Computed example of a mutant assay.
Amino acid sequence: MKHLIVGPDGHGVTDYALQLAKTLGVVGTDVVREETFSDTALPDGPIHVTFTDHIFGASPSEAVDALLARVGERPLSVSFHDIPQREEGAERYQRRADAYRRLAGAAALATVNSEHEAAFFDDTATVIRLPVPRVDSSFNPEPGTVGILGFLYPGKGHEDLIAALRGTGYRLRFLGSVSAGHEKWARGLEKDAEITGWLSDGQLAREIGRTAVPVCAHRHFSASGSLMTWLGAGRNVLASDSPYTREIDAWLPGRITLVSDGDWCRAVDNFTPRTMEPPRYGWDEVAAAWREAWAACGLT
């Protein structure tokens, strides 16, 4: 299996692809690594791609056209990320949905990260959950701190949390970098919250340990590396009530407190920080699931 890995270092989808290849022991010419998608000829044999449309083309349709043209007759395995959601707006959703479904139909194997995402493909996609990476974080929570981790962008709940906790005395800390193109929006958050900027793995582990109330406040999400990072540090988490978080709560019970819209202040007030043994589901388990899925489709 050859791996076509496209996108900038530090992008969540790119990082997933790179870590999967590393765990599988895929090296050398079996990895085609590109910062920007090209039309360079691919090696023969099955091709695995980790896909989100904006990395592969100017529009969802163009992204799929370009990828399928480059893959040609080779068997294709696709790991789908950033699955279209109706909350994006009807026009954008339809453009992306048509493209994603067309690519899935052309693939020998289509995978997603959650059952919620599989429903988008009418449950024809295989579910391989995001790993829960073990984070060695010293538990030393600072009273009154409330944190969201990961890239900052609109819709991830930063503004909702600010509005809910304004005037309460809680100290909001957003652990991560601002996504490109959202710098002006993020500056508007700084009067109410601290934004740490980019953090190394060690720095992030320390900041996780300093945070009393871990939060995942996404308005609409169907998979979350940020949530998995909190869980990998052995933390209990407040998370927006959604089909996805209910799914993860059922999979890993006792680690997530689901929060309804408008109920963040009460949830934070009633939260008790604690640590527990992180779930045993890391990259080795994810790689094993991929091997099993490829074998079932005759892809090796």
Rank of each mutant, 00 (worst) to 15 (best):
L299E: 12
A108V: 08
I162S: 03
L149V: 12
F221G: 08
L204T: 09
T36C: 06
V215A: 06
T111M: 06
A267K: 06
E88F: 15
R291G: 14
M276N: 14
G155K: 03
K2P: 04
C297W: 00
G147T: 08
Y244W: 10
T23W: 02
Y16T: 03
T50F: 00
N113I: 09
V71W: 04
P60K: 01
T211D: 00
P8D: 13
G157E: 08
T211G: 02
I195L: 13
H11K: 10
A110R: 02
R95Q: 14
M1L: 08
D123Y: 11
P43L: 12
P273G: 04
L258H: 00
I128C: 00
H116D: 11
H220V: 12
S79N: 11
M1P: 10
L204M: 05
E91Q: 15
P43C: 08
E159P: 12
V78R: 01
R206H: 09
R33K: 08
R274P: 10
N270G: 14
R171S: 15
D192K: 04
T272P: 02
E88L: 08
F51R: 00
I47K: 00
V78C: 03
V27F: 11
G202H: 09
E87R: 14
L149Q: 09
C216E: 11
T300D: 15
K184W: 07
E87V: 15
R206A: 15
D269I: 07
A217F: 05
D249Q: 07
L227Y: 14
D65W: 09
A193L: 03
Y93P: 05
K191N: 12
D44A: 10
R246K: 13
W251C: 06
R291Q: 07
S224T: 05
D261C: 10
V31C: 10
D122P: 00
F151N: 09
L18R: 09
R173Y: 06
V215M: 04
P141Q: 06
P8H: 03
A239R: 03
